[in-house]
Design a binder for these strands. Structure first.
Length: 418
RNA sequence: GUGAGUGUAGCUCAAUGGCAGAGCACUGGUCUGUGGCUCCAGUGGUUGAGGGUUCGAUUCCCUUCACUCACCCCA
């Protein structure tokens, strides 16, 4: 025996869990609709180019984590590692822009990254994302963050920290990067191996290093929020003012950076202390240059993505109000089985969850099954009852039994059980 | 990609270089056609796989696979 198992990092969503996902999804839908977002579903498979252009050629995601392969026509395609690029692609492709008002979209679905699995990190994982496209006003940043924090309030998940930063834009980021490079260049030999590598690929990421040796240097490093251009500075201040106005708590994190190249200006992360190493529950930011990078008209936008598996770990275990079996039908003997099979079928159509035991099994066995399934009522019918034209209905909780006539049995049951 | 830990019954886990164990679950009885609770009995194992050391390995060693955690990365 060598049973086939799921791939590493790919998980089955089992019945117990799926009820909780449903309940999360319904809360989510409510929140999104109230904030004016419409659902969008994009394909899971896209041209590889879409991601290399948007996420960035030298990011870890693109360099070593994407599921990329040749399609039958020889062209490279990729299982989406994130959702924003596809949403923006669809926005441009279908002309979803609304005149003088931002387009607000949300999505929900699986993402794929070939990483080594660990707590809170899978190869196929699920994200809920929201994007506001076509508006540069800082009020949109605030609205989006309000939605994000409201969502977690509704789920009654506490102990989260909203960290925000500004990464600057095409005008002020390159000079800042130069300043940062010259700063780290002096002490380069003292940095850890990873940071030496980062120095070449993406010096901003050094700010993210958790190693003690690097921290001393990082603490003194110039931060992006001190090197913003006037426009970015004003924008960042306005976002903070807006958050204050809505009484949304946040902390400024000058060292917060993002792993995807397309982010500009506002960047944020929602973190928890309850999940081990993978502490980011949601994250996002503004990406004013992305639409242009994908070949569309310059379109400012901002969005976030929430890691569903990570949220589920925080989401109350008790939330799964699994539906209870209402009626178990216990026929004794084949004749009873034939009489009751149509009853089973009709009662179900009355929207009552009903199951039926095997007629050949002893009543004791069937009662036990009914108990296991958590049945509220059991309908018993053997030869004796059949001759009298009756059936027994037992209330499993009170043990009270009553007789029902077989005529109109379905209607009588429907009345008694609803 | 790097490092560490763990693989024993369906599940959760014990144990010892010398016959493989418990709890839960399952099946039957206790209880003639009535579930849960009690008590009793029973089923269930190539100790992840392969090799080595040994009279003898589940235990020690090597290889391999799987899972887990951390690094990394990120949601």
């Amino acid at each position: 025996m060598n049973p086939i198992k799921a791939l590493k990092g790919f998980k089955d969503l089992l019945p117990g869990e799926s009820a909780r996902w449903e309940s999360l999804a319904s809360v989510l839908r409510e929140c999104f609709h109230a904030f004016g977002f419409s659902a969008i579903q994009t394909p899971i498979l896209e041209r590889t180019q879409l991601f290399t252009r948007s996420i960035g050629e030298t990011t870890d995601i693109v360099e070593k984590e994407m599921y990329t392969f040749e399609d039958w026509d020889g062209k490279p395609v990729t299982l989406r590692p994130e959702g924003t690029a596809s949403v923006v692609r669809a926005f441009l492709e279908h002309g979803l822009a609304i005149p003088s008002f931002p387009t607000k979209l949300y999505y929900y679905g699986p993402m794929f990254r070939h990483e080594r699995p660990q707590a809170g990190r899978l190869r196929q994982f699920h994200q809920i994302g929201a994007e506001i496209i076509g508006e540069s006003d800082p009020r949109q940043d605030v609205e989006l963050l309000s939605l994000l924090t409201y969502f977690f309030q509704r789920l009654e998940i506490e102990g989260l920290t909203l960290e925000i930063n500004s990464l600057g834009c095409a005008v002020c980021r390159p000079p800042y990067r130069t300043v940062l490079e010259s700063y780290f260049k002096e002490g380069l030999p003292e940095l850890c191996e990873d940071c030496q590598r980062r120095f070449k690929t993406n010096p901003l990421r050094i700010l993210d290093c958790k190693k003690e040796g690097c921290k001393a240097m990082v603490d003194q490093a110039p931060v992006s929020s001190d090197h913003l251009c006037e426009e970015c500075e004003t924008h960042f201040k306005a976002v903070q003012a807006g958050l204050d106005l809505l009484k949304i708590p946040y902390v400024l994190s000058p060292l917060l950076v993002r792993g995807l190249d397309y982010y500009t200006k506002t960047a944020f992360e929602l973190t928890t202390k309850d999940l081990g190493a993978q502490n980011a529950v949601a994250a996002g930011g503004r990406y004013d240059g992305l639409a242009e990078a994908l070949g569309g008209a310059a379109t400012p936008a901002i969005g976030f993505a929430i890691g569903i598996e990570r949220v589920m770990q925080l989401y109350g275990k008790s939330k799964s109000a699994a539906p209870k079996l209402k009626l178990f039908i216990a026929p004794l003997g084949e004749a009873a089985g034939e009489l009751l099979f149509p009853v089973l079928n009709e009662v179900r159509k009355k929207k009552i969850w009903t199951e039926m035991g095997k007629p050949s099994l002893a009543l004791k066995r069937q009662m036990k099954q009914a108990d296991r399934l958590g049945a509220e009522f059991v309908l018993i019918l053997g030869d004796r009852e059949r001759e009298e034209g009756k059936a027994i209905l037992r209330d499993m909780r009170t043990k009270a039994q009553s007789e029902l006539v077989l005529e109109n049995l379905v209607d009588v049951l429907a009345n008694r059980l609803t």
